[in-house]
Design a protein around this nucleic acid. Structure first.
Lengths: 209, 209
DNA sequence: AACAAAATTACCCAAATGGGTCATGGCGAT
DNA sequence: ATCGCCATGACCCATTTGGGTAATTTTGTT
């Protein structure tokens, strides 16, 4: 039944690839591809009316790129799943894509059968991506390097992240404000910073806390 | 050939599940399970000698839990891939596990065939996890809510994250320090904070920048 | 036993920060 | 045209912060 089919839209500037994907999708039972676009701008105008279930988005588009288009599309169509397509396996734009709201990340050379499996998975609430990309994403949660801070210093830094000042940190740790000052000075030296904001920023970025 | 087999260790306190998994793994061509442990403490003593390729780690262990054990194990054996096992599909500990260094996250009821596929994938450099978990992980990259800040305020906040002060922010944006002060005051009001550290902390946490 | 690192506390002082209040001009929406 | 938001700028003042220097005690490791 066409009514219950999964509707897929394609945004891809290469006419050959676009046509090829359209044929693969339309030829798959349970899927329909009614709308294809060759650039981000026309997709942003057309798509809000059609509310597709899935969008296959080329990352490299002429004019507005696929990541910026994803950012705009997710706020226009929060229920539409967007899957990025890229040529490079180890593309650095994977994190930018996920931050922009993409649900998956595939390479263009993915064979038709696997592409359809990925679309199926995306529609079922998954996040299809190649194993290498998945590992990269998972690794991003780990601390990048061994923390140079002592346990106590880490405790202090965690409190600074909550916006506490000398006085309240001191109270929380049952020490004097002078001690807190000493710890903070030591933290600054080790992290090579000289303000709280920078220390907090680095702590969160490098997952020291 | 046993020498080139993928060596899997199991850390699981339930003797039945442990034995079952051991049988499944040993019965799979290309895999061997030489070492099993019923708690984190004995695993941490035993494993460094054997350096398995993969570890199946139960999250809920008596004594030290699986996440803490993962943290210690990844620093002892950085080349060993650790895959977490849990009963709950939507366990909140997935992020803690990944931060601790886990490479995958499976539920215990995963059928043997899929379990072995996941182990294969982990060993090939992937990050096996259920589609629901994958989506959860991917979603964590998105900003949680619409930013209340204006464009200019966001610019200022980004500079504060780099540790800049009134003077340097003012220079970077070609405005007076008083204007920067005004922007910062406005940021504080909107974010309901009253120090830089807290503003920066919230900005990075909520992905406002 | 000796040494290094960490935790603790103290004091001085200059600079940075945060709060309060006010004012002007531009711009979009009602 | 009026209201609200935004960006810009200014001034005062109390508090907080960061840098310098120094000392004691605990703890862990040779």
């Amino acid at each position: 039944m066409s009514m219950s089919n999964i509707h897929v839209a394609i945004i891809e500037d290469d006419p050959e690839i676009r046509k090829l994907m359209e044929i693969v999708i339309d030829g798959s039972p349970g899927f329909s591809c009614f709308h294809t676009y060759e650039d981000a701008e026309s997709a942003l105008i057309g798509l809000p009316r059609y509310k597709p279930h899935l969008v296959l988005m080329d990352i490299h588009l002429p004019g507005m790129n696929g990541i910026e288009c994803t950012r705009k599309l997710t706020s226009l169509l929060p229920d539409t799943q967007i899957i990025m397509l890229t040529i490079q396996e180890d593309d650095d734009s994977v994190f930018d894509s996920l931050c922009a709201g993409a649900s998956g990340y595939l390479i263009k050379s993915t064979p038709p059968a696997q592409l359809m499996e990925a679309l199926e998975e995306a529609h079922r609430g998954g996040a299809p991506m190649s194993p290498q990309i998945a590992r990269k994403v998972v690794r991003s949660f780990r601390p990048k390097s061994q923390s140079p801070l002592s346990e106590r210093e880490t405790e202090v830094l965690a409190l600074l992240c909550k916006g506490e000042n000398y006085r309240s940190v001191a109270d929380a740790l049952f020490v004097s404000t002078n001690t807190v000052k000493a710890h903070i000075k030591s933290i600054y030296q080790k992290l090579q910073v000289n303000t709280r904001a920078e220390a907090v920023s680095q702590a969160l970025r490098d997952k020291l806390i």
